[in-house]
Simulated scan of single mutants.
Amino acid sequence: MKTLLVDDHALVLEGLRHFLMANGIEVVGTARNGAEALSQFAMLKPDLILMDIRMEGYDGIQTTQMIKKEHPEVKVVMLTAREDDESLFAAIQAGASGYLLKSMEPETFIRQLTGLTAGEPPFAPGLAVRMLQEISRRRQSADKAADGIQQELTDRQREVLELLVEGLTYKEIANRLELKEVTVKYHVKEMITKMHLTNRTQLIAYASRKG
């Protein structure tokens, strides 16, 4: 894979470049900050970017978001000294394919990185478990908040929601409840807004999960 290295420390960049090339990984370029990374990416079209998190200007997470928005196929792996849960989760939300630490043993680092070609997300030991735990914690918090909001639904909204879960269309719900179709759509929109969801699919999925 053609690889672009992004780090604000010149010595780190040079050492990492030699290390990767010695292990058969093609390094096509380096960048010292987010702006340089965007420029180098546009010119070099790498398959993989090893991205530091803490940099002046655009940090690694912001740069990752911008690249992944336009080129979702590109693999971005965060390479950093930071292993706090907030940075880890923010990186994954930004679209990073993995999260490696500068303190890792060289053999482990290369093994994790080369596993990316086989579709295995590279994570420093223990970080994948922590990421899943954090996702679970946030989902539980969101569910608790939605549970509280669900208690605020009107009786009519509950009726509409139950029929949505059964798989009825807006028109079928309107006929069943003797409402206008536009009224049904209004109730659905209100429920989505109240429960801080994005669309009808999420609303149905949440209601189905809660039974």
Rank of each mutant, 00 (worst) to 15 (best):
V6C: 02
Q62N: 00
Q65D: 00
T169P: 15
R209G: 15
E107C: 08
L100P: 02
V77C: 04
V160W: 01
L20E: 09
V184E: 02
N199G: 07
G98Q: 03
K194Y: 07
D47A: 06
F19T: 09
Y186P: 01
L11I: 14
L5N: 05
G95L: 02
K171S: 14
R139S: 12
F109T: 01
P125I: 08
A128I: 08
K185V: 12
V28L: 10
A118R: 12
I173N: 00
G60Y: 01
E14G: 07
G29D: 04
A142H: 05
M55T: 07
S136G: 08
E120N: 12
G211S: 13
M195L: 15
A145F: 07
A81W: 07
L197H: 08
V129E: 15
V74R: 02
M66L: 15
T201M: 05
T80V: 06
H187S: 11
L177Y: 08
E134M: 11
K68C: 07
Q150Y: 10
K194M: 14
L79W: 11
K102N: 09
R138V: 01
G167Q: 02
G34Q: 00
R137I: 05
A35H: 12
T3N: 02
N33G: 01
K171V: 14
S39I: 06
A142Y: 10
L79C: 11
P122V: 04
R130F: 12
T198Q: 14
K45I: 07
E70L: 13
R156P: 03
T114C: 08
A205S: 14
M191D: 02
N175H: 13
E166M: 15
E83C: 05
N23A: 04
Y58V: 09
P122C: 06
A207M: 07
M104H: 06
R200D: 03
E134A: 10
E172F: 07
P72M: 02
L197C: 08
E107A: 13
L179S: 05
A142C: 02
D155G: 06
A37I: 00
Q62E: 15
L163G: 00
G29M: 11
S39A: 15
G98I: 00
E56K: 10
A22M: 14
L116W: 09
M21G: 03
V77Q: 01
P106V: 03
K75L: 11
R209Q: 13
R137P: 03
A174V: 14
V184I: 09
R82C: 10
A31H: 06
L20Q: 00
L168W: 09
V12E: 07
M191C: 09
Q133V: 05
R137Q: 14
V28F: 04
A10G: 01
V76F: 03
E162V: 08
T183D: 12
L168Y: 12
E26W: 04
L4A: 02
P46F: 00
L203A: 10
N23E: 15
V74M: 10
S208G: 07
R209A: 15
R32F: 10
A42N: 14
M55K: 02
R209L: 11
F109P: 00
E14N: 15
